[in-house]
């Protein structure tokens, strides 16, 4: 390994760590207010729906992507793609996401489900 190689390696690692720090703070929100998170669903770049992810609730709904209807399931503070008309089904195989910043993406259908908000609750007593 040459010196330049080592510099490049260090540079790449440093850049990754810095971007991790920057992104983490951006996605975790500045304040400590602990509230339930939301899932933002957008199709072809336009926001279709925003869903509250409160523990204890359960729902599912259909949305129209570029290829046809997909079914999204919500269970408490997590969300997933239940069915999709795409060929690869990568989005469906991804299963549940629940942390802020995580996304489920269906590229052929041009659908994106993203979780926003601060740290989710583990449960809600009611």
């Amino acid at each position: 390994m040459t010196r330049a190689d080592k510099f490049l390696l260090a540079g790449l690692v440093l850049f990754s760590l810095l971007s991790m720090a920057a992104l983490y703070s951006r996605f975790s929100g500045g304040d400590d207010k602990l509230q339930s998170s939301k899932a933002v669903i957008s199709v072809q770049g336009k926001i279709l729906r925003t869903i509250d992810l409160t523990p204890g609730t359960r729902s599912s709904f259909t949305l129209q992507g570029r290829l046809g209807p997909s079914i999204v399931g919500v269970e408490g503070n997590r969300i997933r793609m239940l069915e999709a008309p795409c060929a690869g089904k990568v989005c469906v195989n991804q299963r549940w996401i629940e942390n802020p910043g995580e996304t489920i993406v269906c590229i052929p259908g041009e659908i994106m489900i993203r979780i926003e908000g601060t740290a989710p609750l583990d449960a809600v007593t009611r």
């Binding site: 390696l9 790449l12 690692v13 850049f15 990754s16 760590l17 971007s19 991790m20 992104l23 996605f27 957008s42 072809q44 770049g45 910043g101 995580e102 996304t103 993406v105 590229i107 041009e110 994106m112 993203r114």
Partner: peptide, 23 residues
């Protein structure tokens, strides 16, 4: 490319992981 197709820059969340796995 993925960001362009979805017209959304949110995927940038995965930038660090992608860089690190490339190394």
């Amino acid at each position: 490319a993925a960001c362009l197709i979805l017209q959304n820059s949110a995927l940038i969340y995965y930038l660090p992981v992608l860089l690190l796995t490339g190394i």
